[in-house]
Design a binder for these strands. Structure first.
Lengths: 134, 134
DNA sequence: AAATAGTCTACTAAATGAGTAGACTAAAAA
DNA sequence: TTTTTAGTCTACTCATTTAGTAGACTATTT
């Protein structure tokens, strides 16, 4: 399951995608429209900004906005930033790999199955952009 | 991510699958071979037994065993029993559906994307049995 | 009756999830 | 240059879940 954080992140991203190149959008506008707790959303947007997904400007007329075209921002990236691994077990994670203890990874069928699951999942999430969820 | 519980459940199931029709296997044997904390494993096996995945016998010569052929026991079933939903968001879960608040589900693109992810995941997990992880 | 092996209830400690509070900083306008 | 505006940052809190443990109980066999 995705965390609430990830679900909010995707909704917020969708909102910004809809308004691409229309100038900065204030956090509270996103919060109200998408029904996300304001202070919680602040944290989430900040995370995504730090990872280069969004940009922001302070002061009057400020807010959040995209610099990258929305069709280039994939759901997989957003989920990884807020929730971490997409794979179901750490030893098949591409970005958050951790080797499993007491398991011969060179010939582990569990690993093989969950690598398949990971690939199936990524085939969707790496190819759906935030424009696909507006 | 799968919980440890689910990972242990899959390993234990694989162990029983390898010894299908060879009589009851004691919990401590599974625990030792698969390096799973004994008391924790007891709980897990019990859960799966209650859901009809395993059978057990008490007393001397007792233990856990399969009555269903292992190739008919799918990973998806085991994961659902111990971890619950496989879908990434509740509103697309087949077995643990919960409607989302403030979202028009008839025309929600988030829902559509995550239904696709669910289908891709299930296509693997509903077709891999515990024989595939020995 | 004793030994064996699963069953069941209940407990704990640590981590995670879901947020909240409030002070701080940058940018723009008065 | 002060005020206002709007994002930034640190650090909380509280509830739930995760990952186990303890110990008494029950059924089966010898």
């Amino acid at each position: 399951m995705l965390s609430k954080k990830a679900q909010y992140a995707i909704k917020a991203a969708g909102y910004l995608a809809e308004r691409y190149q229309q100038g900065p959008i204030q956090i509270h506008e996103i919060a109200e429209n998408k029904k996300i707790p304001l202070k919680f959303l602040e944290n989430i947007l900040l995370m995504l900004k730090k990872e280069g997904i969004f940009e922001s400007r302070k002061g009057k007329g400020g807010g959040y906005f995209l610099v990258t075209p929305p069709e280039k921002i994939m759901l997989a990236s957003i989920i990884r930033i807020v929730d971490g691994p997409i794979a179901l077990i750490p030893c098949v994670s591409l970005y958050f790999y951790k080797k499993c203890n007491d398991c011969d990874e060179t010939d582990c069928n569990i690993k093989k199955v969950f690598a398949e699951v990971r690939d199936a999942t990524l085939k969707v999430l790496e190819n759906k952009s935030i424009l696909d969820v507006v």
